[in-house]
Design a binder for these strands. Sequence first.
RNA 1: GGCGAGGUAGCUCAGUUGGUUAGAGCGUCGGAUUCAUAACCCGGAGGUCACGGGUUCAACUCCCGUCUUCGCUACCA
Length: 684
Amino acid sequence: MTYTDPNKKFKRYTVTSALPYANGPIHIGHLAGVYIPADIYTRYLRSVGEDIVFIGGSDEHGVPITIKARKEGVSPQDIVDRYHEIIKKSFKELGISFDIYSRTSSPVHHQTASDFFLELYKKGVFIEKISQQYYDEVAQQFLADRYITGTCPHCGFEKAYGDQCESCGTSLNATDLKNPTSALSGAAPVLRDTKHWFLPLDKYEGWLSEWILQGHKSDWKANVYGQCKSWIDQGLQPRAVTRDLDWGVKVPLDSAEGKVLYVWFDAPIGYISATKELTPDWEKYWKQEDTKLVHFIGKDNIVFHCIVFPTMLKAEGSYILPDNVPANEFLNLENDKISTSRNWAVWLHEYLLDFPDKQDVLRFVLCSNAPETKDNDFTWKDFQAKNNNELLAIFGNFVNRTLVLTQKYFGGKTPELGELTSLETELIAELKEFPGKIGRSIELYRFREALAELMNLARLGNKYLTETEPWKLIKTDENRVKTVLNLSLQICANLTILCEPFLPFTAGKLSQMLNLGKLNWIDAGSYTLLPEGHALNEPAFLFEKIENVQIEAQVNKLLETKKANELQNKTTVLAKANIEYDDFAKIDIRVGTILEAERVPKTKKLLKLKIDTGIDQRTVVSGIAEYYEPENIIGRQVSILVNLAPKNLKGIDSQGMILMAEDADGRLCFVAPSQEVKNGSEIK
RNA sequence: GGCGAGGUAGCUCAGUUGGUUAGAGCGUCGGAUUCAUAACCCGGAGGUCACGGGUUCAACUCCCGUCUUCGCUACCA
């Protein structure tokens, strides 16, 4: 029985958490954004007595995994096996309570995804398109964009990938590359026709608009709603659901040899296949209108879960749609973006080793600091402060002082509840409100708020003890002390129930110390959870202080990473292959002077320059607007490549290229003669 | 440039449909206390609600503009 659905519109819940990509371990960003909120939500609903399945699993297909496998000389299966195990184990140790943690390489998933595709195919949902794609004739296969390297058409970097140039950061199409080379065989690939199936999102625009823009205007988070609106308003395009690749779910059609489902198509179906693996009753969790489907994801996944996947479900026809998609923003680490490739992260499996038995500390910190409404920052100093000054000082300390006093005065047995003063009746009335307040916040996906409310219950307890001063009263009025400690113990019992979704390990310890049986949310709010004379177990600390040395060790670890990264940045790009003098002689570089400069409207980086090259005056468009103000560069001498074929940019014919030096972080500056020379002077 | 989400106390965040004196936690300062892991409890200080206009009797809240952070997207010979 939930607080926000008193009429019981929903009879059961399907909660999914984004499938982590199995090419690396889990870090705190994943946890704060997705898994901790999802786990709190799930544990709460279980405690409330709802029928719920909590689904997770590894996303194991896609090109990056095949690339990593090639690099390491192992099979893609080896890669996903490795990370799947690390991820699964670390989730379990943190207490993320999946009902099933599956994987998309499982046979059930392959079958399910395949069937799903076939069903849409039979319904005539897809459109087929033939396009040209690079094919490696030596390796006899089509090449994913990532498998093609070549010269970047923008910056000339020779090892740009087919989807992106790592030198200038531009995203590319493989067909943009000059001198494309296959990473498989080293051969020059050729363009070949290939057929692919597309999901025509454009045809569902009207429906999406009605369902999301009208139907979920008030209950979806602002960031989620806004992002969806932005996509729908801009107009949706058909999206390819298949790829030429041999790692993934095979396209179940005769004419689709060597093709697999595109990873974004197969991954969300993983939620369904995992449910299938979990229970033969899976259909009621996916196909009955009285099931509430909730996707926990990060903001990078909004479009897939709000637009693409629902369109797939809608097109299939027999599935329910998500009721909510509570996407979180991003978590930063020590003022810098978390990055797997730069190793700038706190890795869960490392945390679990460095801070044994402190799962709840991480859960607490990441929940209280979760990026629910905007990007947030994790710092080790804050981690320490939250543990020492809140979790320990308020929660742990209250429990400890209550148990120690009970041990001391009453031999560890729950004393009897005597006469109640107005102080107690107020306390009892307040206590009664907590389950509802916390529950409602959780149901509305306001986990920070819920956790803060939980802490307020411990505060209430501390205040009660301070106000009644049982350590003084014991000398004069033992009966009164019995009442005070009885109620304090009842608060501890309530904390046990209410903290479980957030701090399951603590709940376990508390339950053991209080010698409690299994209690549920419905029991909370009561002041008679522990009967008179109930024997307690030996008290122990719930939390321990985190010392400066431990924090310094973690900070130093990050500083090391930073140093290593800087070193790496300093290493310059390797020299290109040798050329003959004749090749160089073809290049005509002159010194010229900037006569005019203005911004190209509606661009961020482009300046339109008029250059006196000594030969002529010509117009050049240059991407330097982020580094130079137009008015500051007029009259400057620059180097200009004058015999480059003209190119039209934003409607302007650019006749040449200004030479720029670029450092590791992409900053540009002019390359110019060290003293003024005549315009038109050759550079050689 | 377009779109989306932000910009509120030193830090992390609340502020519902515009309505007394803008709130909370942590930190800080002071007090009280000693049952408790120097913890708890009480109190104080601390805010031009990014900035500039406008609507209104009244604006953190609504409208317009500017600056700024993050994300997506375009361009960057």
